[in-house]
């Protein structure tokens, strides 16, 4: 019974999400077509003359949206710092003694 209720709840939530995603873009254009395409066309037309780069994905990653790449590199740096902190070489605790 509990499994049936959980299954029905998950199905209802999933159907709600799918129906919402389809209905929100129902009137103008189809499902999956973006509304605003000005920025895409700007990148496609101008990235070769701005950056002298043929790969537009790289031009966006490292020039137009460079701060995102900086954040990604910082996240990786923080992850390595966390791993080095957790897995550092620990000295064994001395038990007994004076104190």
């Amino acid at each position: 019974m509990r499994k049936l209720v959980a299954f029905l709840a998950i199905m209802i939530i999933f159907a709600f999400l799918v129906i919402t995603a389809v209905e929100l873009r129902g009137d103008d254009g189809g499902f999956g077509e973006p509304v605003n395409t000005e920025m895409d066309e700007y990148f496609l037309e101008n990235s070769q003359s701005h950056n002298q780069v043929n790969n537009i994905v790289t031009a966006i990653l490292f020039d137009y949206r460079g701060l995102d790449t900086l954040g990604e590199a910082t996240v990786l740096f923080a992850a390595v710092s966390g791993v080095l902190t957790v897995l550092r070489k620990m000295k064994p605790v001395k038990r007994g003694g004076k104190r």
């Binding site: 950056n51 780069v53 031009a59 460079g66 080095l84 897995l87």
Partner: peptide, 30 residues
């Protein structure tokens, strides 16, 4: 071609390769 974009690619490549290798090394040793 590309100006600073290939240089930034090389720098990010160094950083990512070293970082992921370091994570693997520490996990293996632990």
């Amino acid at each position: 071609t590309g100006g600073t974009v290939p240089l930034m690619n090389i720098m990010v490549g160094l950083e990512v390769a070293a970082a992921l290798s370091l994570i693997l090394l520490m996990m293996g040793k632990a």
